[in-house]
Simulated assay, not measured.
Amino acid sequence: MAQVEIEIGGRRHELTCRDGEEDRLRLLGRLVDAKIGDVSRAIGKASEARELLLTALLLADELDEARNAAAKGRIEEAQRITAMERCAEKLESIAMRLEKPGENA
Score class of each variant (00 low, 15 high):
75 I>K: 11
92 E>T: 13
52 L>C: 06
80 R>E: 11
44 G>D: 01
28 L>F: 08
70 A>P: 06
98 L>G: 06
2 A>P: 05
30 R>K: 11
14 E>F: 11
95 A>Y: 00
49 A>Y: 04
31 L>P: 03
56 A>N: 03
85 E>P: 04
2 A>G: 05
33 D>F: 01
31 L>K: 15
43 I>E: 05
95 A>V: 08
95 A>Q: 06
57 L>Q: 09
77 E>Q: 10
41 R>G: 07
5 E>L: 09
13 H>Y: 10
14 E>T: 11
30 R>S: 15
16 T>V: 13
53 L>R: 04
100 K>M: 13
44 G>A: 02
92 E>F: 01
79 Q>D: 06
91 L>Q: 11
8 I>S: 03
68 N>T: 14
67 R>V: 14
10 G>C: 07
14 E>D: 14
40 S>L: 04
8 I>Q: 06
43 I>D: 01
68 N>L: 08
69 A>R: 05
102 G>P: 01
23 D>K: 07
3 Q>V: 07
67 R>M: 12
46 A>D: 00
87 C>W: 00
4 V>C: 00
83 A>G: 01
42 A>Q: 09
26 R>D: 00
73 G>K: 12
80 R>V: 03
16 T>Y: 05
83 A>I: 03
79 Q>A: 04
11 R>W: 00
6 I>N: 02
32 V>Q: 03
84 M>D: 15
72 K>S: 15
55 T>I: 05
72 K>L: 15
13 H>I: 08
44 G>P: 05
63 L>D: 15
62 E>H: 02
20 G>F: 05
13 H>T: 09
6 I>Q: 06
43 I>L: 07
78 A>R: 07
12 R>T: 11
45 K>S: 12
49 A>V: 10
73 G>W: 07
4 V>Y: 00
61 D>T: 14
75 I>H: 10
93 S>M: 12
93 S>E: 12
36 I>F: 03
59 L>Q: 04
1 M>P: 09
76 E>G: 05
23 D>P: 04
56 A>T: 07
29 G>A: 01
23 D>S: 12
93 S>D: 13
32 V>E: 04
53 L>F: 03
28 L>M: 15
94 I>H: 13
28 L>C: 14
76 E>Y: 00
103 E>C: 06
72 K>T: 15
30 R>L: 11
75 I>R: 14
90 K>S: 12
35 K>C: 11
70 A>Q: 15
105 A>S: 08
20 G>I: 04
90 K>G: 09
27 L>H: 08
72 K>I: 13
10 G>W: 03
95 A>N: 02
79 Q>E: 08
80 R>T: 13
56 A>K: 07
42 A>C: 02
16 T>K: 13
33 D>S: 08
9 G>S: 01
98 L>A: 09
9 G>M: 03
76 E>R: 13
57 L>A: 10
45 K>Y: 01
89 E>L: 07
56 A>H: 01
32 V>R: 06
96 M>T: 14
31 L>Y: 08
85 E>T: 05
27 L>Q: 09
69 A>Y: 02
10 G>K: 10
